[in-house]
């Protein structure tokens, strides 16, 4: 009976993931075509697995209840059945094909070359911050963990992270991008491998020293999207977040013009608005 209760509880936990499907428990559906692909596949495979799990564990639990020695049953003697074994080879293959088809479509869509980007951003990973260069615009800056988080995250700082807004997920200079435009990323690194990841965009891609990786995005909605470095890159790997500020194309143009002006005047780069 204990086994039953336990598995039941586990099953309930599994099933309810769907019901709790909100950001904190589940993958974000995100704000790009790619993130929708990833989310769709994730949910599809998850549910398939839940169904298979219910069937397999169900059969086990039934057997554990019905076929126990204490009920005085005599054990059966059968030890194989070619038919059964063929069936449970074929059915999983069919299920896998059913998964592989959308996965292939999604992957091809995500890896398709996009020759006409509206904007190219070069992303360079350093220990432990990011550098962004807008290649066609001559704008570039470094983006690091914000001061507040940085102070509080020191070992035994004695401060309460709860008081810091967006603790560890905030930067001094966010990456500003226009919505509805095709943005191409060129990712590389200067020292060790990093990985650039903003969940809302639907992918992460490694930034590898000596090589350039390509990726692209088209953000659907304005907003602030946060992410983190996702490849162990040394001591402060946990402290090199990424913040994207997605704005309308007009706002973006204005921001770029501002940047260029201040760059020409030799001033500090002024992002459109700090830490909102």
């Amino acid at each position: 009976m204990k086994a039953l209760k336990f598995t039941g509880a586990l099953g309930a936990m599994l099933v309810s993931t769907g019901a709790w499907a909100e950001y904190k428990l589940n993958m974000t559906p995100g704000v790009t075509e790619f993130s929708h692909i990833a989310y769709g596949l994730h949910m599809r495979i998850l549910w398939i697995c839940v169904v298979i799990g219910v069937l397999v564990f169900g059969a086990m639990i039934y057997s554990m209840i019905a076929h126990r020695k204490s009920k005085g049953v005599e054990p059966a003697r059968f030890s194989h059945s070619t038919t059964a074994e063929i069936i449970w080879t074929i059915i999983p293959i069919l299920i896998l094909l059913f998964m592989a088809y959308p996965a292939t479509k999604g992957l091809i869509a995500m890896e398709a070359p996009h020759d006409k980007p509206d904007l190219i951003v070069k992303v360079t990973g350093f220990q432990w911050r990011w550098r962004y260069d807008y290649l066609n615009e001559d704008v570039g800056f470094i983006s690091s963990l914000d001061q507040e988080s940085n102070r509080v995250r020191q070992l035994k700082s004695g401060e309460n992270p709860g008081q810091v807004k967006d603790y560890l997920l905030n930067v001094d200079h966010p990456l500003v991008l226009p919505v509805g435009k095709q943005v191409k990323f060129l990712l590389t690194a200067d020292d060790v491998i990093h990985s650039w990841w903003v969940p809302a965009l639907g992918w992460k891609r490694d930034a590898i020293p000596g090589f350039v990786n390509e990726a692209w995005t088209k953000i659907e909605k304005p907003g602030i999207y946060r992410g983190q470095c996702a490849e162990l890159c040394g001591r402060d790997h946990g402290f090199m977040p990424i913040v994207i500020k997605a704005v309308t194309p007009e706002e973006f143009e204005a921001w770029v013009a501002e940047q260029k002006k201040s760059a020409m005047a030799g001033q500090e780069i002024q992002p459109i608005a700090d830490q909102s």
Partner: peptide, 16 residues
């Protein structure tokens, strides 16, 4: 070949 710009290496070669 990638470092030399073939295949997936076009940007690697061009940028770096």
């Amino acid at each position: 070949p990638w470092l030399g710009g073939e295949g997936a290496g076009a940007w690697t070669n061009f940028v770096l």
